[in-house]
Write a protein that binds this DNA or RNA. Structure first.
Lengths: 195, 195
DNA sequence: TAATAACTTGAACTGTCGTTCAAGATCAAA
DNA sequence: TTTGATCTTGAACGACAGTTCAAGTTATTA
């Protein structure tokens, strides 16, 4: 064939994701990117097309990581509802300082990007929708196992959880009060659990 | 003394606010601003210092507007809790298309801005804190009037409302489902009201 | 009416942006 | 060992960013 790429695409996308997550789309310059992923402009544009498409791949990478974290918590707890609660605590409170940003990358994108990057807007909507569907499935399991009321509606509850996840992470960044947020999460799951 | 400014400062800041709210800090160029507020660079920099300071004034203008809207709803409803609920419906659902953005401008700032504009970060934190204190006061009134349980904690409840307001507005933009969001708001206020 | 302080104008500066592309390097196949 | 397709390099492009400032305009004061 010919010369073969000298970079690991997954690794590169992950590094780009961390930078984009921290600085946002407009806040990240292509020169920032070049340094971070250690590639020259020509290679980047040959591999990814442009900045927007690379950001798109970074968004998908972010989604996969979050999805993996959720799966791990559910497996560890051996219970859908307890797994969800641990996931909330972990993402909103514990990881807030080691992560590039306290805010969900999908939400950052949704609130930053305008109509000129409508593909990114649609992609973040799509990925958030998938997360909600994921929540719905987990809540159905919780209902089947009697962890939440048999009359509860998993679809409505999943929407509720999405609102909480979005709101809590931003409130964490706003207030800087982990104890207050911990209390809010506890109350949230108390109000969901079967009484 | 001498020549007098030919622009109305309040009006100019309000126009700048609407543009910044729509496009964000990094997404708004000074030339965008020049066109929108109809001032030349020299005048802008003489009046406001720089882009960041103008953005700061825009943030305060935004806060005042939101605060006014809340006050009007409470006055109209003649009840703290009903006023709050109408405020939520109005801001999250009714005004979403006429506003420059569906997302709260303070939250947009908080999630976009980095350490290089730490003044703006601190300012949005401060203004969000004021909003929360405002909520606390209203909830205290609601408790005094027996609209919520006498055992309810207005401070914790105000935090809860902040999380909801942030989450609901972003979820509205994510999902594009006003009916689902309306249901979430109804549930929220049902869960708060005295049973 | 002349002087002067305040405000406005817009060209221009320096720096950085996203992106392109010709030239060089690399490796599998012939 | 030569060929040739593929990938890498980094200088360079035009556009636009935030900001400055000398020159011009305006209205008040003396």
């Amino acid at each position: 064939m010919a010369n073969v790429a000298r970079y690991d695409r997954e690794e590169v996308v992950r590094k780009a994701m961390l930078l984009f997550w921290e600085k946002g789309f407009n806040g990240t310059s292509t020169r920032d990117l070049q340094r971070t992923i250690d590639m020259r402009p020509g290679s980047i544009y040959a591999a990814f097309g442009n900045k927007e498409k690379l950001y798109g791949e970074a968004l998908e990478c972010y989604s996969q990581e979050m999805s993996g974290i959720l799966a791990r918590h559910i497996a560890e707890q051996g219970s859908p509802l307890a797994g969800l609660e641990m996931f909330f605590r972990n993402v909103v409170i514990d990881r807030r300082e080691s992560n590039p940003s306290e805010v969900c990358m999908l939400i950052k994108t949704l609130s930053e990007v305008n109509e000129q990057q409508s593909e990114l807007l649609e992609l973040s909507r799509e990925l958030l929708k998938r997360a909600e569907i994921r929540f719905t499935g987990i809540l159905q399991q919780a209902r089947d196992q009697g962890e939440i009321a048999a009359t509860a509606n998993p679809v409505v509850l999943a929407r509720h959880l999405q609102v909480q996840m979005i709101g809590l992470r931003l409130y964490m960044k706003t207030s800087g009060k982990p104890e207050a947020v911990r209390e809010l999460i506890t109350n949230l799951f108390k109000s969901i659990a079967v009484k």
